[in-house]
Design a binder for these strands. Structure first.
Length: 295
DNA sequence: AAGACGTGGCA
DNA sequence: TTGCCAAGTCT
């Protein structure tokens, strides 16, 4: 057998073991449920904002069945201002499904995980790999960017494609444990070194093997993402409405919600209706509004 | 298959 | 200050 070539994993796995951030859900002893909760909270939300809530959640609801027994309103209140509150509602529903149909054990199988509410392509594989040690590619925005640069020589990842999973699978070492570590390492590199705006190539452990570096770091095709507006959007109004409900100890009269958005009553009404449709708000027989499952 | 969906920090 | 960006999912 001739000399083997050095792979990305040969460099990244040791780098990760030496440089990984000490995040609470990566500590030994973290349950699969703990990993699942962290993955849901981390969807589109920065690590720094998740650490504290994650600890409280696991302390309060250490198992799926514990959360399943709580009313959705309490889950929504505990979610606080993490953003995208539908995630909390879906996590609550997932906890109920896990408690009722899976013996209170978080599934290890990707297909089963994907069948749970709020768990998609990324989260299913993250749980399978990080909580259960399965050898499956885990592809998030960080991994897609790292692969785009280091392997494909492009400045940024294009739109997500089914090809991404295969591209990443090819980078995983055969050893099952190392494969999970490699996935974590790719994510860590993308989150701390190979970042979107200003990559710190001088500190990168794989710069010597990076295709984008070799090509002279060619510029990308401009903004890959459309700018997301905020002021005056339905999202802002929905956030305001929900904030009133979270802050109240129980059901509130319609007037309390009216006061949350005076600018455009029609928009306020439309947003309240959409929250009702989404199951994030409920209306009582007496006309008052409340968080789901309250009273 | 684009677009909707929260929130806050940072350059 | 404005705009970009953050471990996505669902329709």
């Amino acid at each position: 057998m001739g000399p083997t070539t050095t792979t990305l994993a040969d460099v990244l796995v040791p780098w990760f073991r030496a440089h990984a951030r000490d995040l609470p859900w990566r500590r030994p002893g973290t349950t699969a449920w703990g990993v699942l909760v962290s993955e849901i909270m981390l969807q589109q939300t920065p690590v720094a904002r998740v650490e504290e809530p994650w600890r409280s959640w696991l302390e309060r609801w250490p198992r799926p069945s514990a959360m399943a027994a709580a009313p959705a309103s309490e889950v929504l209140r505990a979610w606080g201002k993490l953003g995208y509150p539908r995630r909390a509602l879906r996590l609550h529903a997932a906890a109920q499904a896990i408690a009722a149909d899976h013996g209170d054990v978080v599934p290890a199988d990707v297909e089963t995980l994907e069948s749970l509410p709020g768990i998609g392509t990324y989260t299913a594989r993250a749980v399978a790999a990080f909580a259960h040690g399965r050898r499956v590619p885990v592809v998030d925005t960080n991994v897609r960017r790292v692969v785009a640069r280091a392997v494909l020589g492009r400045a940024d990842a294009g739109a997500a494609a089914s090809r991404d999973l295969a591209d990443t699978e090819a980078l995983l070492p055969d050893d099952t444990t190392d494969a999970a570590t490699m996935s974590a390492a790719l994510m860590e590199l993308g989150a701390t070194i190979c970042v979107a705006r200003t990559p710190r190539c001088a500190d990168c452990p794989v710069s010597g093997a990076c295709a984008w570096q070799r090509l002279g770091r060619p510029a990308g095709d401009g903004p890959a993402r459309k700018a997301q507006r905020w002021a005056g959007t339905d999202r802002q109004v929905r956030g305001r409405l929900l904030d009133v409900l979270r802050g109240a100890p129980g059901p509130v009269p319609a007037a309390a919600l009216d006061a949350a958005w005076l600018t455009d009553p029609a928009q306020r009404a439309r947003c309240l209706d959409s929250l009702l449709v989404d199951g994030l708000v409920e209306q009582l027989a007496d006309g008052r509004f409340c968080l789901p499952g309250e009273q």
